[in-house]
Design a binder for these strands. Structure first.
Length: 828
RNA sequence: GCCCGGGUGGCGGAACGGUAGACGCAAUCGACUUAAAAUCGAUGGCCUUGACGGCAGUUGUGGGUUCGACUCCCACCCCGGGCACCA
């Protein structure tokens, strides 16, 4: 018999050529008989092209490709496109270091990504490829910005913003980590007052929260978004400073504790703080305190453990419920960004207010007592955060349960015009200005007489100018391109200057999935018809690190664009799957650790099919997976065994065609292998539907082990069916070698073949191994026929030799029968 | 501190409340080979020379529900992630 050698490189390049030449994975927007319901949009997050793809990319695209292939085999038309999130800081930083234009380094990286994606055999519709840095793409990013601008959803304001001194640019709140460091470079972030562009995502807080109910996303991702949006219900209550006749509204979630407010605190950034003390004896001390507070890093200021500090303003406000004059303070534990930048302090029922009152020796007044009297030991412990009944709240409210009082007090405030029910969110507006070169220019012209004027649509795109020096100097490098900056006002034709900030790259990636539906449209961002064909994305796949930023922004874009009449759906991603990280020796792969496994070297060594299968076989795809070179070899051996067995079967002389001459009339090993094959069909299909790729691959391994074991004892046709089916089932994971095997055994193309069907009668066997337990412990196994009734099974069990041994002369007190499974005898 | 995940052999991991450890890796032994690699086969707690057979324990810890618990409930320990002075 000839020597059969599995040669992945020859096999893979052959099939890649076929798919490229025949444009196998391209789909048109014109649907045929099946209509929209037979379409599936399978999408993996687009990569940021920097250097070469890493193992995480391989996992993401191998995973998405398996889903795409499975959907095609189920008869759906699958849109499975690819693009590049090509703007961004790393390419620009590289340019600063080397002088190489970001466009060139990005292009080089894109070529590398393209080459590798092809070498992995990912079934991409290359006709729809896009990159966000191409003018033909960002033209429409600019168009969307202008649509938002016209709708009042893009606006400019001076704000205290997070500034990274290393990257010399502003960051979004979301891009600053818990320690107050830049997400990208790790430098401590500073606060600066600058005019910046914002998108009004906060208008959508309620809908972004509520619509989470409508989508099939992992629970943890939904929870993260909910926490980030941070909805709180409460009331806005007005405290009046009589001396200066100024009303200060505050937000509170606990209006039931309003009678316990014994002082009032403002954030150091509050614009009125200095005004309130101007010319008073407190001025100096307050100035000093504010200066210190503003120079604190986020890290220092955010530390909950830090003792509370603050100073008096020497003013008072009136508590609206009881008319009390309570003193005003400034303290750094109050945040300007949340609520109104000022709070009522209830030290008896709030931990932070309590700590502050203790530190400064301020009065503490309890207004809630635990219900049921004073018996509880912890009743005396303050602050008390639990529920109870009101005390010290006047005749109208004393004795009322606090939850009930909460509503009553808000109604009272509303009647008196001193407050009203209110909802607050932690979510802030999205700061999109970046003082950097390599991004989408903001299409606005600043005119001395007309203000901020949108660039007319017909003048889009506003293209990035060529510049000499990418080094950031605290303003956008674009500002140096004088010829580009100086322009005329589209409104009055007078001299004007272009906006020099570029957009956060998250803007680019907030709508790319729409463009894939109609990527070559020259006259619009998309044709609504094209979107109706594909959107929303049926299955979105990516890393959990995008749980908040990208996924929130994309949702916001869809809702805003839907409101503007451009979309007829609200949510972009119907289902989401978040994949786990790939680690090496338990640690995150990184250049500094020197434990980076390059996909190119793996593919070079064992081929793409092995690499793809292994990364999905190693464990559940939503969990982290540790890369093991030895494990890869195991999968490689498996594919080699499959291929050799198929080559051997082919040599034995098989029939051709996809009709297999196998039937339930078979007996012995043939029947056993036939059954195992149908078991595998059933198992793999079920596993694919629940993303259990590891057990799906294991099932094919089991089938192959049986093929191997029975290779000399079954008919050639039985073997042909088992092996062709193995290839068919494994195709979503190892497309090249499976296409090869399937063609050898059937002459047909596996990707055109329907997903195999498991016959019910072959899934059931006429006899099974009955488990015999005594007191819940396994004592024996006997063969039982499938039709046997409970009494018959009980008898079988009692006759089993080892059951008898454990029965002795004991009394059977209970008999449990689970037909098809087991009998459990309970004895005493 | 709050909110999510997760603790199963030497390792990665399987397991609708019903035979724990599928599948793979590593290991050991054997076949083929002059040899090695590749390949194929076997083994995997304890007792038994060995097979047959038998026996016990076991899914982070302690309790509970159940004929029966990796799986459900309660308490605790450890690991990973997210949020964190949000009034």
């Amino acid at each position: 018999m000839a020597e059969h050698v599995y040669d992945p490189h020859a096999i893979e390049s052959r099939w890649q050529r076929v798919w490229a030449q025949e444009r196998t994975w391209e789909v048109s927007n014109e649907h045929d008989a099946g209509g929209r319901s037979s379409n599936a949009y399978i999408l993996e997050m687009l990569p940021y092209p920097s250097g070469e793809p890493h193992i995480g990319h391989l996992k993401c695209y191998a995973l998405g490709d398996a889903i795409a292939h499975f959907n095609r085999r189920l008869g759906r038309r699958v849109l499975h496109p690819m693009g590049y999130d090509a703007f961004g800081l790393p390419a620009e930083n590289h340019a600063i270091k080397t002088g190489e234009h970001p466009r060139d380094s990005t292009a080089a990286s894109i070529v590398s990504f393209q080459r590798q994606f092809r070498s992995w055999g990912i079934s991409i519709d290359w006709s729809r490829e896009l990159a966000t840095h191409e003018p033909s793409y960002y033209r429409w990013t600019q168009w969307i910005f202008l649509e938002l601008f016209r709708a009042g959803l893009a606006y400019r304001k001076e704000a205290a913003v997070k500034w990274c001194p290393n990257d010399q640019t502003v960051l979004a709140n979301e891009q600053v980590d818990a320690e107050g460091r830049c997400e990208r470079c790790g430098h401590l972030v500073e606060v600066r007052q600058l005019e910046q562009w914002f998108l009004r995502i906060t208008d959508y807080a309620e809908r972004l929260l509520g619509d989470l109910e409508e989508i099939e996303w992992p629970g943890n991702v939904k929870t993260m978004q909910r926490n980030w949006i941070g909805r709180s219900e409460g009331a806005e209550v007005t405290f009046r400073c009589e001396q200066l006749a100024i009303d200060y509204p505050v937000f509170t979630t606990r209006p039931d504790t309003l009678f316990g407010a014994t002082f009032f605190v403002m954030a150091p950034e509050h614009p009125d703080v200095l005004r309130l003390v101007e010319g008073t004896e407190h001025e100096h001390e307050v100035h000093e305190y504010v200066n210190v507070a503003l120079n604190e890093t986020n890290e220092e200021r955010g530390n909950v453990e830090k003792p509370k500090t603050g100073v008096a303003l020497g003013r008072t406000v009136t508590n609206p419920v009881n008319g009390e004059q309570i003193p005003m303070f400034v303290a750094d534990y109050v945040l300007m960004e949340y609520g109104t930048g000022a709070i009522m302090a209830v030290p008896a029922h709030d931990e932070r207010d309590h700590a502050f009152a203790k530190a400064l020796g301020l009065p503490i007044r309890r207004v809630i007592e635990p219900a049921g009297g004073t018996d509880a030991a912890d009743a005396d412990v303050l602050p008390f955060m639990g529920d109870g009944v009101l005390v010290n709240c006047g005749a109208d409210f004393d004795g009322m349960p606090n939850r009930e009082a909460l509503g009553e007090i808000v109604r009272w405030l509303d009647r008196e015009g001193k407050g009203h029910a209110s909802v607050n969110y932690k979510l802030r507006d999205w700061l999109i200005s970046r003082q950097r070169y390599w991004g989408t220019p903001i299409p606005i012209v600043h005119c001395p007489s007309c203000g901020a004027v949108p660039v007319p649509y017909e003048q889009l795109p506003v293209e990035l100018p060529e510049i000499e020096d990418y080094t950031p100097k605290g303003r956008s490098p674009l500002a140096a391109a004088e010829e580009w900056v100086n322009t005329t006002c589209p409104s009055c034709a007078g001299a004007a200057r272009r906006e020099t900030d570029t957009m956060d790259t998250f803007v680019d990636s907030s709508w790319y999935f729409l463009r894939y539906c109609d990527p070559h449209n020259q006259t619009a961002a998309w044709d609504p018809e094209a979107l109706r064909e594909w959107m929303p994305v049926d299955q979105y796949i990516g890393g959990v690190e995008h749980a908040i930023l990208h996924l929130m922004y994309a949702r916001f874009f869809c809702k805003a664009l839907a409101d503007l009449g451009h979309l007829d759906f609200q949510e972009p991603f119907q289902a989401l799957f978040t994949q786990g990280m790939v680690t090496k020796d338990g640690a995150k792969m990184s250049k500094s650790r020197g434990n980076v496994v390059s996909p190119a070297s793996i593919v070079e060594r064992v081929g793409a099919d092995t690499a793809r299968c292994y990364i999905l076989f190693v464990g559940p795809p939503d969990q982290d997976a540790d890369w093991s070179d030895a494990g890869v070899e195991g999968v490689h051996r498996f594919l080699g065994r499959l291929w050799r067995l198929a080559a051997e079967a082919e040599e034995r002389g098989v029939k051709s065609g996809e009709q297999f001459d196998v039937s339930a009339e078979m007996q012995g090993d043939d029947l056993a292998l036939l059954r195992k094959t149908h078991w595998a069909i059933d198992k793999v299909g079920g596993d694919l539907r629940r993303f259990a790729f590891n057990t799906a691959i294991a099932a094919v391994m089991e089938l192959l082990n049986d093929c191997s074991r029975l290779r000399d004892s079954v008919e050639a046709e039985t073997m042909r069916f088992a092996l062709a089916t193995s290839a068919s089932l494994l195709f979503p994971f190892a497309p090249h070698v499976c296409a090869d095997i399937y063609e050898r055994l059937t002459g047909a193309r596996v990707w055109e073949a329907a997903w195999p069907h498991a016959e019910d009668e072959l899934l059931e066997s006429d006899a099974y191994e009955l488990v015999c337990q005594v007191n819940g412990k396994l004592r024996d196994r006997v063969m039982a026929s499938a039709g046997a009734g409970p009494d018959e099974l009980k008898e079988l069990c009692k006759q089993a030799p080892n059951v008898q041994a454990h029965l002795d002369d004991k009394e059977i007190v209970k008999e449990i029968v689970v037909p098809g499974k087991l009998v459990n005898l309970v004895v005493r």
